[in-house]
């Protein structure tokens, strides 16, 4: 007797968001990237469409990343002193689909770099690589609100993915996106209700922004509550596929940022002999965290270690193989 394969039919699909803009579209990128558009759960090609593969963005800072573990720094060498060279290396040597530029130096407690300083760095990176860019501030609200407008203006038309809008602080980022044609990362603290509400708040400022929002559900590293992130993402996906327009956006996860601050990535083997070699362990920690999130529906992974990126990209290629029958 023939076995009938049960297939779920969903009412709706994830929104498709375009990142970057080519010359014809008002930017300077050599190509744009599309994320989202799935009409089924992750990689169930037999059931629906997964038109765009998940992508990997590699993190580049405006300052030398002193706090990174040595094996992570070693992977990039001298390039870490020059954001443009660093970005170029990520794209040309390590196959990054996008660059996530983090203005760590803007932090008043680090270097207090001005908006002009940030813009200068942004311009060199835009010149050095042709891939679309994600831009993060330093993480201190007041400073980020002050620099995000000028940064957005200086890169008008590039369709950067600007981070981050939060429930209590979304207007400056959303305004910059609205005024200068960029996209927005809407970040919520592992809370599906706030994720949805934030999208509503942003869309109330400008309805067309609905198609330019990427949700950051806030992810945790492996061993630090990744299952909470996983279940929030899963719920958002079911919502999206069942017609919830306010949760139907692609998702982004700050994998490198979460993973490389955890002790499993930097404690040397002589302190924890049972944990195994630190270099190998750390990049495995980043890769496995990313791979778990892919299964939950992550569209953009922001990562750090080139070896981990390589493993994840290989996994994406395998997962994107057609499994329809």
């Amino acid at each position: 007797m023939a076995v009938e394969i049960l297939k779920e039919k969903y009412r709706s699909q994830v929104r498709e968001v375009v990142l970057g803009a080519t010359k014809d579209e008002g930017g300077t990128r050599s190509a744009t990237i599309k994320v989202g558009g799935e009409s089924t759960l992750p990689f169930l090609h037999f059931e629906g469409e997964v038109p765009n593969p998940p992508v990997v963005a590699m993190e580049v800072w405006d300052i030398f990343p002193e706090e990174w573990p040595q094996n992570l720094k070693d992977a990039f060498g001298d390039a870490l002193n020059d954001p443009a060279a660093w970005a170029k290396k990520c794209v040309e040597e390590f196959g990054a689909d996008l660059i996530a530029l983090r203005f760590k130096g803007a932090d008043p407690d680090v270097k207090d770099a001005s908006a002009e300083d940030c813009i200068a760095v942004l311009k060199t990176v835009l010149e050095a690589v042709g891939v679309p860019l994600i831009v993060y501030g330093c993480g201190k609200l007041e400073k980020d609100n002050a620099i995000i407008g000028p940064i957005g203006e200086a890169a008008e038309g590039e369709n950067l993915l600007l981070g981050v809008a939060e429930q209590e602080n979304y207007k400056s980022v959303a305004s910059a996106a609205m005024a200068y044609k960029h996209s927005v990362i809407a970040q919520s603290p592992i809370d599906i209700n706030i994720a949805k509400q934030l999208n509503i708040l942003i869309s109330e400022m400008s309805t067309p922004l609905l198609d330019r929002i990427v949700i950051d559900p806030t992810i945790a590293a492996l061993g630090y509550g990744i299952e909470y992130s996983y279940s929030i993402m899963e719920r958002a996906r079911f919502g999206a596929l069942n017609g919830d327009r306010m949760l139907g956006m692609p998702m982004i996860g700050n994998v490198g940022h979460e993973v490389w601050s955890k002790k499993e990535t930097f404690i040397p083997v002589d302190e924890e002999p049972g944990w195994g070699d630190q270099a190998e362990r750390s990049l495995a920690w980043e890769a496995v965290t990313a791979i778990a999130l892919l299964q939950a529906g992550m569209n953009i992974l922001v990562m750090r270690h080139p070896q981990a990126v390589k493993l994840v990209k290989q996994n994406i290629d395998e997962l994107m193989q057609d499994n329809s029958y």
């Binding site: 209700n193 949805k196 509503i200 309805t207 719920r235 919502g239 919830d244 306010m246």
Partner: peptide, 17 residues
């Protein structure tokens, strides 16, 4: 049947927009 958010009534009303 729907995921809660503070503006859930508006979301239901605006579903056709």
């Amino acid at each position: 049947m729907d995921i809660y958010c503070d503006s859930y009534v508006d979301v239901f009303k605006n579903q056709n927009l």
